[in-house]
């Protein structure tokens, strides 16, 4: 490795960073592909169906494990239809804007206490800022399509994401008050000591608000009014086909994994093991992320879609007051001798 470093000279840092980025993005995209498979399987089982079970490898069916690859090949070879009167440049740029923040946020996500691409002080703020960019993809897609349904979908999505971002931000304030840090590595380290020391317990209302707002932020059922098949066909991506549509799909699932990882890091102790004696490690983080992803799929299989005014009521009149009151409570108790309960 040192020989390689000498060979590249000043170009070493960018090249090495690029290698690390690829090492994060490739497994992430694989996880996204297999999350779509897992979703179809899990929802299938919940509805007493089989789910995809035909496409396998080398003549073996393997529970349909080849399905995501077959889907990707199909979408890659399909034509991208650009509607007449659409704003061509923005129409093609919107999927890129949707997926870029979903990928960029991973720059500061720690996988263990040392395995992190950029261990910056304000990583929590960075996540908040970058994920707030995701809404542009949806808004621009709806506007550039030159279609009424798409535009309605993008307007709904914009209002919903902006509303739930506030509750999400307040939930994070509670976490950083407990951890006394904006750094994700420090936040996880503050939860050391096993299952009962993770922040889900002292910050339980914030944990719930964050989890549910996360579902709303990613436009997943039961908050998927931006797509709303029964009302506005498919919402903001009704005019998209082929790979342009697939990129929106990838962005949605990448965002799901991101939100699940963040919830695990901030409320469920990240890579820390639930029982103090057992060794910590990435396995625990993966298990926690998988559990929250299962919740995402479970919600979709279980709940009917929220009505639009109910979504707004839940966001503004329930979640924001709950987070505000809990932040005030945490702040007050931190000043008393019982402050250690929240650390």
């Amino acid at each position: 490795m040192e020989q390689l470093q000498d060979l590249l000279g000043p170009a070493w840092t960018p090249v090495w960073t690029l290698v690390k980025i690829v090492a994060i993005v490739l497994p992430l995209l694989t996880a996204v592909a297999y999350l779509t498979w897992a979703e179809r399987k899990v929802i299938g089982w919940m509805q007493v169906r089989m789910g995809p079970n035909r496409v396998g490898f080398f003549g073996f069916r393997l529970w349909g494990l080849g399905q995501p690859i077959a889907d990707a090949v199909k979408l890659l070879t399909k034509e991208i239809i650009i509607p007449s009167g659409a704003n061509r440049g923005l129409f093609l740029f919107a999927p890129v804007l949707a997926i870029a923040p979903a990928m960029a946020a991973w720059a500061v996500i720690p996988f263990t206490d040392r395995l992190v691409l950029a261990n910056i002080d304000a990583s929590l703020l960075y996540i908040l800022a970058i994920t707030s960019m995701g809404v542009y993809g949806v808004i621009i897609a709806g506007w550039a399509s030159n279609s009424k349904y798409a535009f309605l979908g993008s307007l709904r999505s914009a209002a919903q994401i902006v509303s739930y971002e506030i509750a999400m931000g307040f939930a994070l304030v509670g976490v950083l008050m407990s951890a006394q840090s904006l750094n994700l590595v420090e936040i996880v380290k503050g939860q050391e000591g096993g299952f009962w020391h993770w922040y889900w317990l002292p910050l339980f209302p914030l944990f719930l608000v964050y989890l549910i707002s996360g579902v709303a932020e990613t436009n997943r059922a039961p908050f998927d009014v931006a797509e709303g098949e029964s009302e506005i066909v498919a919402g903001f991506h009704v005019e998209y086909s082929g790979m342009a549509f697939a990129v929106f799909f990838l962005a949605e699932y990448a965002n799901m994994i991101l939100i699940s990882t963040l919830t695990s890091l901030m409320f469920l102790g990240g890579w820390l093991s639930p029982i103090p004696g057992l060794p910590d490690g990435f396995v625990w983080l993966a298990a926690k992320v998988s559990f929250i992803l299962l919740l995402f799929l479970w919600f979709r299989a279980t709940f009917p879609r929220y009505r639009y005014d109910q979504i707004m009521r839940l966001g503004w009149k329930v979640f924001i007051p709950v987070t505000l009151i809990w932040i005030l409570l945490v702040g007050l108790i931190l000043q008393t001798p019982y402050g250690h309960l929240f650390h």
Binding site: A122, L125, Y126, L128, A129, I130, S132, M133, V135, Y136, I139, A158, I161, V162, E165
Partner: peptide, 13 residues
């Protein structure tokens, strides 16, 4: 980061 969060993420939307 606050510039991105406030102006790009909320005001400009």
């Amino acid at each position: 980061i606050t510039l991105v969060l406030v102006y790009v993420g909320a005001v400009m939307v």
